[in-house]
Design a binder for these strands. Structure first.
Length: 570
RNA sequence: GGGCUCGUGGCUUAGCCUGGAUAUAGCACUGGCCUUCUAAGUCAGUGGUCGGGGGUUCGAAUCCCCCCGAGCUCGCCA
């Protein structure tokens, strides 16, 4: 339930009635929330000026006179051509806190929605450790999944494992032929160890034609559907994937399901798609390779052809992706993809191909810009990359120093636990606070910033709330919360009341950066309350403890949506 | 060349979809606040041609057009 909804509705009804009474026929308007804290809700009267031949100021004051305050609305006034409303904050305090107490960790969630939703994210190629550029994908994807779940959707998250193609074959060859007693074996984590073999094998392939021939042979066997080869390659991909998943688990990302690309070669589904696409009137051929001519579908550029077979008839990545999406739509009503911006054209082409195959729906995509380094693009070849594991390690280590500086009273284990929550949280928060379509330049000093708009700021507010509650005795929740009427208390309650509408917009409109924005606002609002309103030694102790407890719950819910842990002390 | 995206104080960023009151925060910088629930906090101050120009409108950061700059993209790669 959204505690603010009844107030919005009431403002709408009252304004509509008053405007009709002063001569506006069928008034059409939106109820606004002013950017400054002049009022809780406002209705601009400028659009009615022409019809009424009166100034907006006069219209607003005439309308204000027609409206009397109610149980929900405590003040109505005209100002600068606006009809302003202040809501009954005592009433809001009671409904909001009671709602939070009765729903707890479910506070803010929406009603169960019908239909299944399949969300694909991450899907990085299993050829090396995940770097921070690629990590934007799971961080966005996992957070969106959490928001959609909170909105009431039945959702399955899936990783599409790319175990087809030359890269994985090279790695597989390397694993079979390279000396494994080399220095690379010293590396503990499997993905970091394997990427060494990949680099070495790649180099050998470039330098030695015999190796290249062997790899080529393996590739051909794979594409012919040789069971033994497919099995071998998939095993390699699985090993690398395990390493990647281990990294993702550190930042609280886990997936429900995995789809292996080779599946569609093995089970003949990709071949079936080929024959169906060939039947399309848009299908053409060049040197034995088939493609769709997409010019009439609004695809622009030098090249409007969408190839789906090679000259030798074998399938392409795009063919398998079409097959995969056919498969997705057979399992779900809505399909959501988290993709790098370089996939935009491909997705547009894919949607057209799906329509030609009779699928009415299209995947809904969230595209994100790439993460670059101050020195430019990330490049594995030039060694210009920051691996997610390294970032996490550095963040944890810096967080540990900070914890040690402040909390020397804690045990080593406890300090470690807190440092992990803060360090890993900082990594996620830092990527979440910027809209996905904005380019992101990775800077260590930003990623490891523990002040201001950061993960620890929110976590710290939560820890402060926990700390007060720990020191307090149990308190009475069956009281009138309208005594919480101080400006800091009222502001905090209004912020708590906003949470359900924030979740709704974040999930329904894929605007997940609203969650960190809100979390920061709530934490800041609580910090002000904390600074100026004494709880344990002040008046209204039960009501204030209740407010602290509710803030703790909502901060914890917001942290959960972002995939951050909520330490009880810091 | 075509298409898509981005451009808001020194840096990062909200607001743009759905036009409306003095444009939101953070970092950095300057100066305050710990005998009172954890100072990862808080207060005050400095700092803005909302890339540029035109248009629509009572009103434009927001909508439309043109231009400039940056990124992505236009493979029988994945």
């Amino acid at each position: 339930m959204d505690p603010l909804q009844i107030y919005r509705d009431e403002v709408k009804t009252l304004s509509s009635k008053a405007l009709s009474e002063i001569g506006v026929s069928e008034p059409s308007f939106d109820v606004e929330v002013p950017s400054t804290e002049i009022a809780d809700f406002a209705v601009p009267c400028f659009p009615f000026a022409k019809a009424l031949k009166k100034s907006p100021m006069i219209i607003a004051s005439e309308a204000a006179e027609k409206i009397s305050t109610s149980e929900l609305i405590s003040k109505v006034w005209a100002e600068n051509g606006y009809l302003n409303f202040q809501i009954n904050s005592g009433k809001l305090a009671n409904t909001t806190l009671q709602e939070i107490f009765s729903t707890g960790s479910d506070y803010g969630k929406g009603e169960k929605k019908a239909g299944k939703l399949l969300l694909e994210h991450t899907s990085v190629n299993p050829t090396g450790p995940i770097h921070i550029g690629r990590a934007r994908n799971p961080i966005i994807g996992d957070t969106l999944a959490r928001c959609l779940r909170a909105c009431g959707y039945d959702i399955l998250t899936e990783y599409y494992v790319n175990d087809v193609g030359k890269q994985v074959i090279i790695l597989t060859w390397g694993l079979e032929h390279l000396d494994k007693s080399s220095e690379d074996d010293v590396v503990d984590k499997i993905d970091h160890r394997l990427v060494g073999y990949y680099r070495k094998a790649n180099k050998m392939m470039e330098e030695n034609p015999e190796v290249a021939a062997e790899i080529g042979q393996m590739l051909r066997k794979f594409e012919d559907g040789d069971k033994e080869t497919i099995e071998k390659v998939r095993k390699t991909a699985k090993m690398m994937l395990d390493g990647i998943l281990e990294s993702l688990a550190l930042i609280n990302v886990s997936l429900d399901s995995f789809m292996w690309e080779s599946t569609f070669i093995e089970n003949g589904a990709a071949a079936e798609v080929v024959s169906k696409l060939k039947a399309s009137e848009y299908c053409k051929e060049e040197n034995g390779a088939s493609y769709l001519e997409l010019e009439s579908f609004g695809i622009h550029g030098r090249e409007t052809r969408f190839f789906f077979t090679r000259g030798d008839g074998t399938t392409l990545y795009t063919t398998r992706d079409v097959t995969y999406h056919l498969n997705k739509f057979s399992r779900a009503d809505r399909v959501v993809n988290i993709l790098g911006e370089d996939q935009k054209l491909g997705q547009a082409q894919l949607a057209i191909a799906l329509h030609l195959l009779g699928v009415e729906r299209s995947p809904e995509c969230v595209f994100y810009s790439f993460v670059s380094l101050p020195e430019g693009k990330m490049s594995t070849r030039r060694g210009q990359v920051v691996n997610l594991d390294d970032l996490i390690e550095e963040a944890e280590s810096r967080a540990f120093d900070e914890v040690k500086k402040r909390r020397s009273d804690l045990s080593e284990d406890k300090m470690n636990e807190i440092a992990k929550a803060i360090g890993r949280g900082a990594v996620r928060y830092n990527m979440l606070r910027v809209q996905p379509e904005k380019p992101l330049v990775f800077r260590w000093e930003d990623a490891l910033n523990f002040e201001g708009n950061s993960a620890p700021f929110v976590q710290y507010a939560h820890a402060r709330a926990c700390s007060i509650l720990k020191k307090a005795d149990s308190f009475n929740k069956d009281i009138d919360f309208s005594e919480l009427s101080d400006i800091y208390e009222t502001k905090l309650i209004k912020t708590l009341a906003k949470f359900p509408s924030v979740i709704k917009e974040a999930g329904e409109k894929s605007r997940i950066h609203l969650i960190p924005l809100y979390a920061h606002e709530l934490a800041a609002s609580f910090n002000l309350f904390y600074t100026y309103v004494p709880v344990l030694k002040g008046d209204n102790k039960d009501a204030r403890l209740a407010l602290v407890d509710c803030t703790r719950v909502v901060l914890s819910n917001a942290l959960y949506l972002m995939g951050l842990n909520a330490p009880e002390e810091m």
